[in-house]
Write a protein that binds this DNA or RNA. Structure first.
Length: 585
RNA sequence: GCUCCAGUAGCUCAGUGGAUAGAGCAACCGCCUUCUAAGCGGUCGGUCACAGGUUCGAGCCCUGUCUGGAGCGCCA
């Protein structure tokens, strides 16, 4: 609907053909937002790039384009500046009409995609019998946000939790369970593993110290692979306990995800090996079944193998990942498969994908994407740990954020002499605390490491969740004060954009769809954060200098509409980041 | 040794081949009898790691170097 830039591009493509002939059809007009507001709103840089091809100087070319350009409905007359830039400024009347459309649309003028893709977002992926820790934070938050954006744009998204629920470590876990909690296998609901981490550590410790325990564990792995009912029951109990613990975290974070762990692909692994052998890709090396990779070498410079089946006959994660790719392309019919994992797995994915492609399991139209992210570091720049040096449990991390948000809130209420109910305080602290954690993570370019700081993420000023939540609450303050019903606003008054700050805000509001398209393509939620932060700043500037409730009509209603659109955009934008809003805070 | 990622203001970070590289924080100076000052305005702050190259134009693309991080055969 808005798609301002798309409309302008069309105009320029037509002008290029009209000016220079049909062989210029499809030339990218290099239309981008203006680098500086003094140049207008958009600039076309195509004239410089055509200079050599046309044998003319760029300003001449720009003039010829402008002569054939028809953007009268959208823009003021274009101007040519500098080396041959064509500068465009949107007409207030056009902006007003666009805002009106945005106002009357529950999707704020953002059309669903014309090309919905079956998409898998593979994220979070904790391990059974271990608690979720800080290492799962980024995948969970970033993956959820990417899924939300794609869902909103109309893609058919499968959110997959590729849980670590299979493999050799289950030998020791099952053995420990059977020995330490024998009643769990015979009595329903007898098992309540309050602390999975302790359970895991105990099992690990016995595994490391006790030869007999190790041998039993090894046999349990075999029994598990063979489908022994008692072993499977123990495995199942461990999974169930873990799901409960994970679910608590997902509810706290308001995240929906479908569990489909590594065990799901277990029955398919033998087929993967078989088919790779049939395709002639498999080579036995030192007893293991391998595919030798193109473009990867080991320390000696020899081709690097990807091990598909270990020398003991067992499978490893490459096998599982291959089975998953095949299942996702063939059974799920996925066209875009997005893996949200730490950057350290980049090599692994390149290797597995190469094999999957060589095996013909990835059709041409299917896109495999790794969405890498950096490590979470403490304020000292080292790996984020507790004071005692342990890994930080996700639960504790979130509780701490909420508790700090609660303290900030209490302090402020006291300073302002406000009385609020316990319910209000608890809810506000929850929303602010969780939002702060999510926003701090999402607002950074995910490829770099991320320094975790409660103080910075909970700060009331700067590019933080509280700053944006405040804008939303502030607009609701106006609504309450003026007793305004935003739903019934303004059919009887026009939208009028006169003040510079009104125009700036309006233009920013209308750029929302372009940002979502960018996030859809490059899967960088920090762009959405940047957009919302700039929107909040622009609203606050507008609010600071343009009276709303005290203004005379039609300005009053017009400004209320700008406020309403800002609130709705902030609410929608934050929801796509997985962040809730507060009417008051 | 090889592969991948990063290097931009004192700190934390944005930056889509385009014009004079931007925010926030910190520091300093202003603005509340006026819709929530959790706000707004201003000042200060730069060898975009380094050296070449491509281009009309490079923080961005290419090559090399340096620094930091991650990974590199039977863990995931």
């Amino acid at each position: 609907m808005n798609a301002i830039i798309a409309q302008l591009k069309d105009c320029f493509e037509q002008a290029l053909v009209a000016a220079f002939g049909s062989e210029f059809a499809g030339t990218d007009p290099i239309l981008v937002p203006a680098s500086n507001p003094k140049f207008g709103d958009y600039q076309c840089n195509v004239a410089m790039s055509l200079s050599k091809r046309l044998g003319k100087n760029p300003r001449e070319i720009a003039a010829a384009i402008v002569e054939h350009l028809n953007v009268d409905d959208l823009c003021e007359p274009p101007s040519i500046a500098g080396a041959g830039f064509i500068n465009l400024t949107l007409k207030p009347a056009y902006l007003e009409a666009q805002l009106r459309q945005m106002q009357t649309d529950s999707r704020l003028g953002i059309a669903p995609t014309k090309y919905p893709k079956r998409t898998i977002v593979d994220f979070s992926s904790p391990n059974i019998a271990k608690e979720m820790h800080v290492g799962h934070l980024r995948s969970t938050i970033i993956g959820d946000s990417i899924a939300r954006v794609l869902e909103f744009l109309g893609h058919d998204v499968l959110r997959i939790n590729h849980l670590g629920d299979w493999g050799t470590q289950f030998g020791m876990l099952i053995t420990h369970l059977k020995q330490a909690y024998p009643e769990a296998l015979t009595t329903a609901n007898a098992l309540a593993l309050g602390d999975l981490t302790t359970f895991y550590k105990q099992a690990k410790q016995r595994f490391d110290e006790d030869e007999a325990f190790r041998e039993t564990s090894r046999l349990e792995v075999v029994a598990l692979q063979a489908g022994n009912p008692e072993t499977l029951k123990a495995w199942h109990l461990l999974c169930e306990q873990s799901f409960l613990a994970f679910q608590e975290i997902y509810e706290l974070l308001n995240i929906k995800i479908t569990n489909r762990g590594e065990s799901f692909y277990n029955p398919l692994l033998a087929g993967v090996v078989e088919d790779l052998a049939k395709l002639g890709l498999l080579v036995e090396d030192q007893g293991a079944q391998c595919v030798f990779l193109e473009g990867f070498t080991n320390k000696e410079g020899d081709p690097l193998p990807l091990i598909i089946q270990k020398s003991d006959g067992g499978y490893n994660y490459a096998t599982t990942d291959l089975a998953a790719i095949r299942y996702r392309t063939q059974q799920d019919q996925a066209e875009r498969i997005i893996y949200v994992t730490d950057a350290g797995q980049a090599n692994h994915f390149m290797q597995v994908w190469q094999v999957a492609r060589r095996a013909g399991w990835v059709p041409e139209n299917v896109e495999l994407v790794h969405v890498p992210f950096g490590l979470v570091q403490g304020e000292d720049g080292k790996k984020f740990k507790t004071r005692s040096g342990d890994t930080v449990r996700l639960r504790d991390l979130l509780d701490e954020a909420v508790s700090r948000a609660r303290q900030d809130l209490e302090t402020r209420l006291e300073a302002e002499n406000r009385q609020e109910t316990e319910e209000f305080k608890a809810h506000a602290a929850d929303v602010v605390g969780i939002s702060a954690v999510k926003y701090a993570d999402l607002s950074q370019n995910r490829t770099s490491n991320y320094i975790f700081s409660y103080d910075k993420m909970l700060a009331l000023q700067g590019n933080t969740a509280p700053y944006m939540l405040y804008v939303y609450a502030r607009i609701n303050g106006i609504r309450r004060k003026g007793d305004i019903d935003f739903e019934q606003l303004g059919a009887n008054y026009p939208i009028v954009l006169q003040e510079e700050l009104e125009l700036t805000l309006a233009k920013h509001l209308l750029g929302f769809d372009e940002i979502l398209s960018a996030v859809e393509a490059d899967l960088m939620p920090n762009r959405l954060c940047q957009y919302l932060f700039e929107l909040s700043q622009k609203f606050n500037q507008f609010y600071d200098r343009c009276p709303i409730l005290q203004a005379a009509e039609p300005q009053r209603t017009s400004r209320l509409i700008l406020a309403d659109l800002t609130a709705r955009t902030v609410k929608l934008g934050l929801s796509l980041l997985g962040i809730a809003v507060l009417e008051r805070m």
